[in-house]
């Protein structure tokens, strides 16, 4: 399943995932955003992996926020953008 969210300014936040037994699996975040340190990318994948597929979006956002250090720099990506892309992947809204 594939979902995209286009940030104001044009950067694309993309989520690819599968659902098994009601939980997210094989979650992959990607896009042309900027993120430092770069290890945060796979930390977000890890935070999303195993979440319940019917979790409210706000809870998904909080799970993402929890793995982003205060010192991280984000441009063209936000926890809300990622959780929106997750919702779109789950509900078949492919377009940004």
């Amino acid at each position: 399943m594939h979902g995209e969210y286009k940030m104001p300014g044009g950067k694309l936040v993309v989520i690819d995932l599968e659902v098994e037994a009601g939980r997210l699996t094989n979650v992959q975040l990607s896009g042309d955003f900027f993120l430092e340190p770069d290890s945060v990318l796979h930390a977000i994948d890890g935070a999303l992996d195993g979440l319940e597929a019917d979790l409210p979006q706000a809870a998904t956002t909080r799970a993402i926020e929890a793995v982003i250090p205060d010192t991280a720099m984000l441009y063209g990506i936000s926890p809300e953008a990622v959780s929106t892309a997750v919702q779109r992947a789950l509900h078949g809204e492919h377009k940004a």
């Binding site: 993309v14 690819d16 975040l29 990607s30 896009g31 042309d32 955003f33 993120l35 770069d38 990318l41």
Partner: peptide, 9 residues
Amino acid sequence: IGRFQSLRN
């Protein structure tokens, strides 16, 4: 490709 881009996408 950019650091965070998906190769196959």
